[in-house]
């Protein structure tokens, strides 16, 4: 029944991650297709965030982490083993595989500086080009009209939803190919959640998106493909059709939790 995968965006094979000798992910294998919205759910402590962070090697930021297995990402048309010796340098990898967190993590600077600083520092953009890129990214997340007049305000003065969109815009501006989204609406109210969800749906044609979600209903609304994680293992994979069948969905979920 499954479509034969011909051009996967990300291939994860037998991924294991340990922190200080404690196994968090065990033999996780999955294939991520382009132009689909992938959602990972699972109880807390099931390794969702760790899986996400394995894809841009952010786990290495934390002490005593050991990763084994294979993660290959399609960058500029080729599948690249990101843990290999000749992999692209970490800063570049993380720019191509962007990440947005649960709590909006704006830098304690102005809105404008939040957007421009990474662009200036990593891509060396200046002047008109810089401004153009900032405006483009802010428009992508529908924030431009709201902040155009107050670009020099502290970013922390924005509302939670606006901050989250700013983080998304900051990530998009760097020109990623993959977006990793870690429970992006967990700290937001209903309206802001709706905006972010719509945004993800709009963006999925152009970016490979993997989202971790804390809510089953959100997962059902968003996912083209769903993975259920438990105790560091993939328990179940579901496609759009299975997700739409409410009875089947309920049965599967009941079996797992």
């Amino acid at each position: 029944m499954e479509k034969v995968v011909t051009n996967p965006a990300i291939v994860v094979e037998e991924l294991c991650v340990e922190f200080s000798g404690k196994t968090v992910l065990e033999n996780v294998s999955l294939t991520i297709l382009p132009a689909e919205l992938h959602v990972i759910i699972g109880p807390s402590g099931s390794g969702k965030s760790t899986l996400l962070r394995a894809i841009n090697r952010l786990n290495e930021f934390f002490p005593n982490c050991r990763t084994s297995g294979l993660v290959r990402i399609r960058l500029d048309g080729h599948l690249v083993d990101i843990y290999a010796r000749d992999a692209p340098p970490l800063p570049e990898l993380r720019r191509r595989v962007a990440m947005v967190f649960q709590t909006p993590a704006v830098l304690p600077f102005s809105i404008e500086k939040n957007m421009t600083m990474p662009l200036k520092v990593t891509l060396g953009l200046r002047g008109g080009e810089l401004r153009e890129r900032m405006e483009w990214a802010l428009r992508q997340v529908g924030l431009w009209d709201e902040v155009e007049a107050r670009l020099l305000d502290e970013a922390t003065t924005l509302s939670g939803g606006q901050q989250q969109r700013l983080c998304l815009a900051r990530a998009l501006a760097l020109g990623p190919q993959v977006l990793l989204v870690d429970e992006p609406t967990a700290s937001l109210d209903f309206r802001a959640t709706e905006t972010i969800e719509q945004l993800l749906v709009d963006l999925k044609d152009r970016y490979t998106i993997i989202a971790v979600s804390h809510s089953l209903s959100q997962a059902r609304r968003l996912a083209d493909r769903l993975w259920v994680l438990r105790e560091g293992r993939v328990m179940q994979q579901m496609n759009r059709r299975q997700l739409q069948d409410a009875a089947l969905f309920q049965e599967i979920i009941d079996n797992i939790f």
Binding site: L90, P91, R95, A98, A105, L107, M117, V121
Partner: peptide
């Protein structure tokens, strides 16, 4: 964590 996330060395 924002440094690495924004692709900064």
């Amino acid at each position: 964590i924002l440094g690495p996330v924004c692709g900064l060395s």
